[in-house]
Design a protein around this nucleic acid. Sequence first.
DNA 1: GTCCACATGTCTTATATAAGACATGTGGCC
DNA 2: GGCCACATGTCTTATATAAGACATGTGGAC
Lengths: 248, 248
Amino acid sequence: MKKDPASANFLPLYEQIKRLITRGLAEGEWPPGEAIPSEMELARRYQVSQGTVRKAIDELVKENYLVRRQGKGTFVATHADDGTAYRFLHLFPLEGEREYPHSRFIGFGRGKADAPLAKRLSVRPGSGVVILRRVLEFSGKPVVYDDIRLPVALLKGISSAMIEDHVNAHKGTLYSLYETRYAIRIVSAQERICAALADEISAPLLNVAIGSPLLCIERVAFSYNLQPVEWRKSYINTENYYYFDELN
Amino acid sequence: MKKDPASANFLPLYEQIKRLITRGLAEGEWPPGEAIPSEMELARRYQVSQGTVRKAIDELVKENYLVRRQGKGTFVATHADDGTAYRFLHLFPLEGEREYPHSRFIGFGRGKADAPLAKRLSVRPGSGVVILRRVLEFSGKPVVYDDIRLPVALLKGISSAMIEDHVNAHKGTLYSLYETRYAIRIVSAQERICAALADEISAPLLNVAIGSPLLCIERVAFSYNLQPVEWRKSYINTENYYYFDELN
DNA sequence: GTCCACATGTCTTATATAAGACATGTGGCC
DNA sequence: GGCCACATGTCTTATATAAGACATGTGGAC
């Protein structure tokens, strides 16, 4: 435990504790949904004061890694939780109450990562990827077409049946599937948003005319320590829905 | 100062301090760029401990209201600062280094707020608004067309010459203009993003064909306490630039 | 067996203390 | 006058303490 501020690679104690806790999370010592040890216990374990652990946890809570529940303990955040299941879906109806989509899977296969995808996923070009295609329907109408790709190495033994079961029967999101079946927790994502026109593939799926304007969003989703896990490209019909962003 | 947690409208002390400091900021007691009093001084003034003030300031720093500079003091954040001037511009080139735009103003006038705009700006329908139109050029090429509207009451005596001077001669952003000339600081914004097609107005301004895909972003910018200040609609040619969003 | 009071464990808020780092101004030395 | 050492003020990090709030389990009274 480095405590000398003069040291070249000095890190504040709370930052070191943050990393130690994050390591525990990444290694699955405390799986999503479970409680981590109490602040006092972690303080003893890492040989620092409880206040330092508190500061580390405070930050991890702000980063959505952990969730505090007063009187009960501190828990590992999870997508298998109604409140946060659609945290990454920034799509809202132009009119009326917020709705959540139904997934209709239209393709499941395997392929190889080309150079750009390999770069985004930090894998070797040519390495195997799982390919998923689906349409998100709001109130029964198609709004989003997704092309989703993940390193096959992360999802050993995945099958279209398993996905359908989890997502449709079990009402889960893909991110909760990664969590419960593959112990991979998505904690952040980056999106690049462009405008595009509906083509022969997307137009019929979204039930719009070819040449209609669509949002095109390329997302890379990350697990702990910014490790890329999933790439996806979404085509969105924004006739009745908009993408919401809050700037601070 | 309420300290009784049993009270119905109980607020933690640090939260009360946060609001008191925010009030000082909103009322211009400490203008953008200036230092606020030291933690000890604020503690004396508000009759709480220095640690409580610290927690309040910590949060205000995370919300970009304040900036800490070790050894110097804590300062009111400002857009008139190279580092944060383009904090709200989420546009990046598909290739190459980040660039910053040049503003070309193409319209300046006044009008009345229709019902939707009035609602967004929290003003009476029919009340006066200033209307600004401009094109943002990156590397000399038009990429964004902005239609910007603000309550005229907030911008007494504004003129196109003043804007041109501030933005072009002085290299400032609109938000730094609001700050320096009108003591209005923009601290947050909400954006609704849709896909659209270039029409007879936007196409020539952006130098694209009618029917080209554009991003259409409707933004409302807020000052302290979520007070709406500015509405704008941006049309963006995303052939060479993308909108970036980070999800956490 | 059921229900309530109480103890216990945990997070929440508030306060106090102290050593160190960083920036700046002041006074003295040359 | 120029330069340096030092004091001062400020933020930064770490630790300790304590009263309260919330959730849960336990044991006794009935």
